[in-house]
Design a protein around this nucleic acid. Structure first.
Lengths: 201, 201
DNA sequence: ACCTGAACACCGTTCAAGT
DNA sequence: ACCTGAACACCGTTCAAGT
C-alpha cells in the first residue's frame, strides 16, 4: 500500500493519487465495520484528509462504493470474458448472472444505487460500473440468444434490472439466488410446445 | 381552516382524530406536488399542526405513506377477495399481481419500504399493510397451486419480494409489468415434458 | 493547484412548557 | 391528555483561507 511509486517527484500529483488510496482503504474498513451508510465525514477523518477532499475525489457515495469494490468488479468482468468461451452459452450466462446477483446482494447499497441510477445525478465512475456490468451480461446474453436457448425478445437491461432488484429485495444472497432461479425458469426457451398459455382446467 | 366539526363536544379525542385526517390530506397533496421525500416538517406545517404531532400519529414516514394510500389498499384487498371466486385460479392470481405491481410501482417509496422492512424498525401500521397484501396474494396463490397451475414449491413471500422488486427496479409501471411477465413465465407449471433443463445444441 | 476545516443548510427526533 | 415549537443531533455540501 501507499507505494509512492514515482520516488523522484513526490509533487502535488502524487499526493493527490495517494489520497484517493487512503480514502478507499478507510472506506473499505468502515463499510465493513459499520455498514455502507457511515458518515462521509468519518471516512475522511479515518483517512486523515479533509472532508472536502473526499468530495473532490468521489463526488458521490456511489462512486466511493464502486471504487471500494473495484477489484471485485474487475474479477467479474474477467469471468465474463472467460465464460464467452464456455461450450454452453446458456449455462455460461446464468453462471455469470449468479455471480452478479451475489455481488450486488452482498453490497445492497450498490444494488440500490443501480435502481435509482435513472433519477439520480449521473456520475462518471458509477456509469463506468454500470457499463461494464451491462456489457459483460450483454455479450453472454447475445450468445445464448443466437444459440436459441434464451428467448430472443429479452433485452439485457430488463434482465439486469430484474436480477438487480432480486438482490435488493432478497434478505440475503441465498434468497436472491432463489429469485434468480425463478427468473431463469421464466427466461429459458422451453421450445417444447405451447406458447405462453398453460393448459386450462 | 380548523373547521371544528363536532360542535357539541369538541373534546380532545375529536381533535386528535381530526388532526390525523389533516395530516393525511396534507401529505397526500405534498406527495403529489413534491414527491414522497418532502420534509416531514413541511407536511406538519401544511396541515397546521406541530411537527411533533405528526410524529405521534405516524411514527415513521412509511406509516404516513400507507395512510395516504389507504383507500387504494382497501380496493386491492377487495379485489383480491372477489378474484377468489374467479373460475381460473391462475388468471386470478396474475391479475391481482398485476394490480399489485402497478400499485407499488407508482409509489416506489412504498416498494422500497417493503424491501427494507426486515431491517428497519417494525411498526404497527406498516406491518398491517404488509400483512394485508401478503394474505391477499397468499389466498390466490394457494388456489392456483392446488389447481396445479402454479408450481407447488413456490412460497408467497418469495413471489411478493420478487414482484415488489420488479416495481422498484422498473423505471415506470409499464417496465415493471414487463418484468412481471418474465416472472410469470418462470412460475407457471408448463406441465409439458422436460424438467428444468433445455435441449442442448 | 490542492488541501483544510469551519460554516451552512437541511431534516428527523425529542422535550420542556403550555392548554 | 394532547399539542406546540424551539432545541438538538446529524450529515452532506460549500467556501474562504491556507500551503
Amino acid at each position: 500500500m501507499m507505494a509512492r511509486s514515482a520516488a523522484t517527484t513526490p509533487g502535488r500529483r502524487a499526493d493527490f493519487a495517494r489520497n484517493a488510496g487512503l480514502l478507499v482503504s478507510a472506506a473499505k474498513e468502515l463499510f465493513d465495520e459499520r455498514g455502507p451508510e457511515v458518515a462521509l465525514d468519518e471516512i475522511a477523518r479515518r483517512a486523515g484528509v479533509g472532508n472536502a477532499t473526499l468530495y473532490r475525489h468521489f463526488p458521490t457515495r456511489r462512486d466511493l462504493l464502486v471504487a471500494v469494490y473495484a477489484e471485485e468488479v474487475a474479477a467479474l468482468c474477467a469471468r465474463g470474458e472467460a465464460l464467452l468461451q464456455d461450450t454452453s452459452p446458456v449455462e455460461a450466462f446464468f453462471e455469470w448472472m449468479d455471480d452478479f446477483v451475489v455481488h450486488v446482494a452482498t453490497k445492497r447499497a450498490l444494488a440500490f444505487a443501480a435502481t435509482e441510477s435513472r433519477t439520480e445525478r449521473r456520475t462518471e465512475q458509477f456509469d463506468r460500473w454500470l457499463d461494464s456490468m451491462r456489457s459483460a451480461a450483454g455479450g453472454l446474453l447475445l450468445r445464448a440468444q443466437e444459440d436459441g436457448s434464451i428467448r430472443p425478445d429479452l433485452v439485457v437491461d430488463d434482465l439486469m434490472a430484474l436480477v438487480n432488484a432480486s438482490a435488493l429485495a432478497g434478505a440475503d444472497p441465498c434468497h436472491a439466488r432463489r429469485m434468480l432461479r425463478i427468473v431463469r425458469h421464466g427466461i429459458e426457451e422451453t421450445r417444447t410446445s405451447t406458447g405462453v398459455e398453460t393448459t386450462r382446467t
